[in-house]
Design a binder for these strands. Structure first.
Lengths: 361, 361
DNA sequence: CCAGAGCGTGAGAGCGCTCCCATGACGATT
DNA sequence: AATCGTCATGGGAGCGCTCTCACGCTCTGG
């Protein structure tokens, strides 16, 4: 009855009247005429809440524009409702690759129906330690790691920390039972080999990606095995760094070393553009003199002249899957989902049209 | 003396012995032989801490691999140590634009020396309300908004909520005293006009960007004023959506309506590529018959054939500046820094080489 | 030689939330 | 009719941190 007297533990004048602080769960409960506990249950998709109480709370949420305080919540739940997207090499060069746009789009899509937030973690090699500290520090509930290289030593320790992690692209350290989402890079390489042979190539060659990335290595192996299985001789190989400029250089080396080359498989479309450039500058016609196949189905592939044949992969879908798998593993810790590998698919355009119909392009 | 008996308020067996939970400030303090308060002060760049205490705490931090609990900290400080990057239109189409890669790179750079994290907020128009709720909910300390359109009604309310916000690209609602970082789009348009006239064009035209984006509008106004000030007649204008395909269509319309066109200013490089395509398909030589200038200095510009003249802008630097300004405003709330506008610069390549030296490309 | 200022320190409260547990009101079971 | 669940509810503790405040110490000036 004596409400006037401030009770112990209830600060009499905690909030200055002027301060417009957002409503707390306590305010919500008061407005709904229930206890803080009941309000909390109602907020969190309440079981054990009567329909009337639920309705009252729902109404109060709208009336007060109540938003739960994330910090307070995660302090007790030990969940942060956020995941990290770790990008180990934020050079402009790599960032520009639409690959990242697709990954971001896909992961965001998988988070759409949740209230989980995406934290971007650009980790330069010189502060890898900091990244690991952040990830292990419980600041996120899980992480998606893209595009990591062989030299990235922090992967092992991180994977062992118990933090749920999904890799996009097969990681090097498969021993840890790491979970990943990837495309069939090996199969893509094989398809490129079969396609170019079928299109009439007798002396195919390849511009491979960096040897410290699994995607590049797998594509190369697939290519080589594809040639071998078709009874063809091993092809010349030059390595480049997935950039147009690097590939142009590699192509010059390749053509100098193997002048009779009549087909080139480039392990990325950006590299294929470099290949096309050099071929043009040397007066070689595509596909009549040299057929070209790229990889990624980058938007540039369709625009190049001639339009570039390429291997396509459902990057956005892969990233969405990775996000979904991560959420799953966070929900049920300890479950290590099996890796998921998406198929690669050949897209034939003018740059590798069979000799018979070559001039049509 | 009777330690056996659990005292009130001190749970006897709170943590199961097996659970490996990370060390708390209390643990840290115990290890360092100081109080929780002193440990806290030492952690937070402590003034009023003796050198010995500081050293002890520092050592303990290393020994225990202590990481402050962000949730607990932000619960009391009402700071989250994170900012949002709001991208209002996460269609693939737009995401693919290297613009975003540059923004992300730049913002990340500005956060490098802080422990502020970047939260990516992809806001589809159909859940703009959710985005606003999130931003106003105190989940981040500030936000950077890119690429917003005229129809984005949520900008006003958000700006009035008191949350520090920096726009990249001048927002439509300048009345709110909104802070932004931009380039001189008007000046870029003017330069394009002057350059093309100087290169010998008598009948220039332009493919403008969407009329609901300030960047597009400003470039167009600059272009028109540039022509007018040079005594030239108003140019034909076609609008497109900043994509290659859209620009190709617009170019066809343009050439049909104004067959004598001898120069085209496209408001983005991706659009300029569409322009080049159509010109090629119609048998018009670049720059001999029609000179072309793009905008953005996209990596594709240098690769196009002929290499594309374009207007360049320091996007990464702009984004870094935006990040820095945001941090500043968070640090000192209420200060509304003045907008910053970076210069635009013309890069001349083959696509607009003066008629005299045209065939050199 | 003593008052006062300055400084490092520790105790304690409390940020907003979730979860455990005790409570009371029912209906179902013997 | 007496007893035992079942269920919605509210009280209370506590997550890990920061911050205010009071305490005791040393150092100075009159």
């Amino acid at each position: 009855m004596n409400d006037q007297q401030p009770r112990a533990g209830r600060p009499g004048l905690a909030h200055p009247p002027g301060a417009k602080s957002s409503p707390t769960l306590e305010d919500l409960a008061a407005a709904a005429g229930v206890s803080r506990s009941t309000a909390s249950r109602a907020i969190n998709g309440g079981s054990r809440v009567s329909p009337e109480a639920q309705a009252a709370v729902d109404a109060a949420v709208v009336a007060l524009a109540y938003t739960p305080n994330r910090a307070a919540r995660s302090l007790v739940t030990r969940r942060t409702a956020s995941i990290a997207l770790v990008i180990p090499e934020p050079d402009m060069r790599v960032m520009m690759d639409p690959f990242f746009a697709m990954v971001i789009t896909g992961v965001t899509e998988s988070l759409r129906e949740t209230d989980v937030q995406l934290v971007l973690l650009m980790s330069r090699s010189d502060d890898a330690a900091r990244t690991v500290r952040y990830l292990r520090g419980g600041h996120v509930d899980g992480a998606i790691v893209v595009s990591h290289h062989q030299g990235d030593t922090w992967v092992g320790p991180l994977a062992e920390s118990g933090l749920p992690i999904i890799f996009i692209g097969r990681p090097w350290q498969s021993r840890h039972g790491l979970t990943y989402v990837d495309t069939d890079n090996y199969g893509g390489g094989t398809q490129a080999a079969q396609h170019l042979l079928a299109a009439g190539s007798r002396r195919p060659a390849t511009i491979a990606g960096p040897a410290d990335m699994t995607a590049a290595v797998d594509r190369l192996r697939g290519w080589q095995d594809g040639l071998r299985d078709a009874g063809a001789a091993p092809s010349p190989v030059e390595f480049a760094d997935f950039t147009t400029v690097g590939a142009a250089e590699a192509t010059r080396r390749l053509l100098d070393a193997a002048p009779g080359t009549d087909a080139i498989f480039a392990a990325s479309d950006l590299m294929a553009v470099g290949v096309l450039e050099v071929l043009r500058s040397r007066g070689l016609r595509v596909p009549d003199d040299v057929a070209v196949v790229g990889y990624d189905n980058h938007s540039i592939a369709a625009l190049a002249s001639p339009a570039l044949s390429t291997i396509t992969q459902p990057m956005v879908e892969m990233a969405t899957k990775a996000g979904a798998m991560l959420l799953e593993e966070i929900e049920a810790p300890g479950t290590h989902p099996d890796p998921v590998v998406y198929p690669a698919e050949l897209v034939v355009r003018s740059s590798s049209a069979p000799r018979a119909a070559a001039t049509k392009a």
